[in-house]
Write a protein that binds this DNA or RNA. Sequence first.
DNA 1: CTGAAAGCGCTAACAG
DNA 2: CTGTTAGCGCTTTCAG
Lengths: 328, 328
Amino acid sequence: MNISEFAKIAGVSKSAVSRYFNNGYLAEDKRQLIEKAIEKTGYSPSVSAQNIRTKVTKLVGVILPKLSSESCARVTEGISEVLSEEGYELLLVNTANDYHKEVEYLDLFRQNRVDGVILLASVFTPLHQSVLNKMRIPVVIVGQSYKGYNCVCHDDRGAAYALTKLMLDKGAKQPAYIGVTLEDKAAGEERRNGFKKALAEAGIILSEKHKAVAEFKIQSGYEQAKRILSKKPRPDCLFCATDGIAAGALLYCHEAGIDVPNELMVCGVGDSQLGQIASVPLTTAHLHYKTSGVEAARMLLSVISRHDSVPRIMKLDFEIAERESTSR
Amino acid sequence: MNISEFAKIAGVSKSAVSRYFNNGYLAEDKRQLIEKAIEKTGYSPSVSAQNIRTKVTKLVGVILPKLSSESCARVTEGISEVLSEEGYELLLVNTANDYHKEVEYLDLFRQNRVDGVILLASVFTPLHQSVLNKMRIPVVIVGQSYKGYNCVCHDDRGAAYALTKLMLDKGAKQPAYIGVTLEDKAAGEERRNGFKKALAEAGIILSEKHKAVAEFKIQSGYEQAKRILSKKPRPDCLFCATDGIAAGALLYCHEAGIDVPNELMVCGVGDSQLGQIASVPLTTAHLHYKTSGVEAARMLLSVISRHDSVPRIMKLDFEIAERESTSR
DNA sequence: CTGAAAGCGCTAACAG
DNA sequence: CTGTTAGCGCTTTCAG
């Protein structure tokens, strides 16, 4: 069913139908005629045809590294909430941590497939840089902050600093650290920097053997914790860059009979569900993932509609969730 | 940049360009001319314009109840994997457990917006029925099985039966049950039926006070476990319809000093990450969520391409992950 | 194998 | 306020 056919059925002109669905500059009787015909036929205009004329797709592309990561899912939920409210739809790409795909899809979106893109960033290579610069549609980056781009990010450094300081203030003297790849500027570099800053302020130097890098997995956290905690002297507090890693560490402690928090304090970052049900409830930082999705979507929509091109960076605050794993 | 402009730059005709991107019925020299021009200009044809002519969107709509649920995320990951391999893209709708939205978006997709729809079903109302029947594009339902529709589902009943039998075989005599709403046919009704079947076979009758319904949340599992486990005589095994609920129950047990598994065996369903790191590692059933996404996407794609309209139902097998929470 | 030309379904300018 | 009309960018006959 197309607009002409429908117009005939409704007994009005094509333009009347078009106006009904758009600006609504229309006499009441025709409006009713059209409404009745819609009920009867279920007609609705072809989105592609509209798009070809108006250049508006009402589509936002979302590129993310791993959908089944709780943080990504929460950000996407926030995005989806705002988008659907504003009549936009969400074109989802899961890159499965393959950043070539990230670039590939960015490039695919570059053309007029979507009105804008939200990128849940992981790493940021020169390739990203160059594709991003060529983008003719608005882009918002979530989770990392890059000068010159619209970003919504978390205070990774602040959170890591506060968490570490919390443990130090409770008397820890021998810290250990399980981080993630520094390629990830937010979860890797920033959180490490926050940790280091707290150590520096306390005049503590981190021993090489109390440092490890894990993947974003429980199992990997378990393994690295095992490695680190078997070194002598054993650390008395452990900062993990993610809750998943911390959960793995806690698992090891449980198995190895290490008393958390008395022998060892542990904390993570992200406030995932895991932390609530771990053998010892986990102290962590709530980073407001869903809110960052909401804000990113709003930011994108405002750039789309206002064609406002001054890039902004929004940094969200965090809250410390203090639980048993650091209680003394 | 449109096809005419591009054709001029490349020094060929519009049709040649079109053929290049489609059937490829083209002389080698023109092909090279076009390739060179693409490199220079970055041209690619407008998807909407293609769609308007061919009626093919290369888009699949995915409707799900809650993105941040681990099971949904995993299914969607499976879907995404297959889709992107086959050159399709994914239009994502998160209904936030509001099934009116489910119907609303089904209806939105009904028109030519997407080539097919995958519905991660929660409930199934007459409204769903009627919209589903009106759909002119292929639909695959994941997670529930309905006669007359294409479905990929899990063996919820079998898994619940096996899990319950496992606990009974280990000597449990006083079972308890925390389920979810029966409106959810799979996680609610089917799992309950599996549980009941195992009880019936063992000649055990479930006491009313050992029955509860929780929401899909850790907190809710905690509360219901608290309610049930304070009743006398205390049950000696607890079946939970989801891992999240079981995790909540385990949390309560930990707090209340109930010894799992010696005083009380506990199991869940779904093999979520939560089960691995709970205070006591949780016995559960692995339902192959990601695989169901993969299969659903394949099924949809085959219906789309072959226009094959005999509905099929595919039921995936499960595996029991036996862990400490039921060890005796 | 190739180019010209006719639409796909819609919107928006234009002239009433 | 309304109908007519000219395209939007593309694919696909059709006649070479």
